[in-house]
Structure formats: structure tokens, C-alpha cells
Design a protein around this nucleic acid. Structure first.
Lengths: 160, 160
DNA sequence: GAAGTGAGTTAGGCTTTCTTAACAATCACA
DNA sequence: TGTGATTGTTAAGAAAGCCTAACTCACTTC
């Protein structure tokens, strides 16, 4: 039972994970700043996560993810990462916007679609290194809203 | 002032629009079935939308979108459509899942990203008709998780 | 060791969205 | 025309998330 969490709770878990990459102690204030919510909201969220065994927390102490919490946090972060890369690197969306959008989308995509998107992003960023045409064609299309026919013709020859 | 609506209200508007494509009268029960919520929820939502001048509604009568309501509904439907086509036609996600996911994502994407995605989907589905390699390559990658090198080599020759 | 400061918590309240249960209007048709 | 089924509405309330205000705790500093 991977203990399905709400979008909001997933955000808290993700935030805690991100902060503990950088700091040894994760505090309520830090989480509150990162997520743009007030401290009481954090306290309450932590209580809930704690009841679900996703974080470790003693009153007035610092917060830490449990094993279970880490699993979910990693999953969310992964979803975020993929979406961000898709928006930023493939579609060329501006950095900040891509981050914001990834934050919102990361909770709505089914595992199946996520898996497909992951593959797609990998494909887009690694596979066609020696085949510049389609990424170039995409870039052109994103910019101009129509195909670059010249590029298309240049890029390949009819075989037999 | 385009009267920013919540995800939920957008769903109601979209549903009303979809139903009125098929039926002359849009009823509470119909909306309720389509969105999978109970009728009182619909009544309340309609009251709210009515206060915002997005739907026309007399007690016990049928519901209709106003001009303003139609604008928003069309926009939501468009976002849905693009996301669906991306998931279904480009990524090959199963029809039902693609619909569900599109429903969730359609509220979270910024206009900028949406515009880019639209372009991308157009590009993917129309441009490379004479250039089978990249879609084929993608298909292969989605299935096997790695590049089809043979296809890559077959698809183009080094120029000069 | 008392006082002040910053961090964390509790209490109470608001909004959104949904629910169930009970009531009211409308319509079809005998 | 009256009655029963369908449709729509009201009332009351629950859950999730957020907020402000007011409190408590812990830690530093003199």
C-alpha cells in the first residue's frame, strides 16, 4: 500500500526532500518559505504526514522523511523532473514557467502516461544526436508555426 | 477581465458545452452524470457560475452558457483536446487514460506552455509525413526503451 | 538565571467542493 | 385533473487547505 497522498501532501514531501539535500536539519519555517504557505499550515501538514508514517517529527524538533516518505518524495521529484525537462528542453518553455507548470502537472499524470513521457523525453534528448533534422524541424515549427520545408528536403533522400 | 475560474468550475463549463453539442436542453442530471458528482453539487456550481455571468439559468429550468461562458468553455475544451492528442496520438497512451489525464492536466498548464505544446502536437502530426524516421524512431523507443539504430541509419545519409 | 528573540504550535475561522437526506417543482398520462 | 416518477433544490455537514492571532518553547546573551 503506497499510501496515496493528495497533491498538497506530495508537495510537502517533495519540499522536505529538497531541503534535506542541502541542510542537515529541516525546519518548519524553511518548508513554509519554500512552498509559499504560512507556518501553521506546515505544522498541520506535518502532523498528517506523521500519522501516515511518512515523516519523523518530535514537537519543536526538525522534520525528516521516513523510508516510506522518501519513496514517495523521490517519485514526485522524478515526475517533476521529467515534466520540467519536457517543457524546458523539448518545448523550450522559459525556465521559471517550466518549473511552475511542472509543479502543477506532477500530480495529475497517471503512471502509464508518465512512463511514456519519460521515454519520450529520453528519446528526444538522446537518440537523434546524429539525426539533427527533427529537433531542428521542431524548433523551427515552435518559432514560426509552420514547417521548414527546406530543412525537410535537405535532411533526407528518398530511398529506392 | 476574463473572470478566472477554478479547475472545478472550468469542468462544469466544459461539461455544459459538451452536452449542448448533442442535446438542445442541458439538465442538472446530465451534468451530474458526466462529471460523476451528485446533483446538489451541480446546482450549487451553477448558482456560482450564474453569479459570474457564465451561465443562464432559471430555477428548475435548463442551463445554457452565456457568451462569456462559451469563451471559457471553448478555451478549456481546446486545452483538453491538445493534451489528449499529445497523450493519445503522440505518446500512444490508451484512449481512456489519455482522456482522464487530459482532464486533470487541462487546468494546470500556463498559456505559454500550452501554446508550445499545441505547436508541438501540430508538428508531430502534420509536418513529418514525408520523413517517417523520427515518429518511427519514437514508436520504437516507446516500446523498447532504446533507440533503433538500424532505423536511424536507414533513414538518412550523411550529406557532404 | 532572567529576558528577549525566533521557531513552532494551537485555536478558531474561512473557502471550496463534495456529500446525504429531505423537500419542491414539473411533466406525462390515465 | 390528479398522481407518480423524474428532476431540481435546500439544508446541514464533512474534509482538505489555507489563513491570522495568540500562545509556548528553546536558545542566546548578558
Amino acid at each position: 500500500m503506497p499510501n496515496k497522498q493528495t497533491a498538497s501532501m506530495e508537495d510537502y514531501l517533495e519540499a522536505i526532500a529538497k531541503i534535506s539535500e542541502v541542510k542537515t536539519e529541516v525546519g518548519v519555517t524553511e518548508i513554509s518559505k519554500r512552498l509559499g504557505v504560512k507556518k501553521p499550515s506546515v505544522t498541520i501538514a506535518i502532523r498528517k504526514l506523521s500519522e501516515d508514517d511518512l515523516v519523523e517529527h518530535r514537537k519543536y524538533g526538525s522534520v525528516a522523511l521516513t523510508q516510506k516518505g522518501q519513496v514517495i518524495a523521490r517519485d514526485v521529484a522524478h515526475r517533476h523532473e521529467i515534466l520540467f525537462r519536457f517543457l524546458f528542453e523539448v518545448l523550450g518553455v522559459e525556465h521559471g514557467t517550466a518549473q511552475e507548470d511542472a509543479c502543477k502537472l506532477e500530480h495529475g499524470l497517471s503512471p502509464v502516461s508518465m512512463q511514456r513521457l519519460t521515454r519520450f523525453v529520453e528519446f528526444a534528448l538522446t537518440c537523434p544526436q546524429e539525426e539533427p533534422t527533427w529537433r531542428q524541424g521542431l524548433e523551427y515549427y515552435l518559432k514560426h508555426g509552420k514547417c521548414n520545408l527546406e530543412l525537410l528536403n535537405r535532411g533526407h533522400q528518398k530511398r529506392d
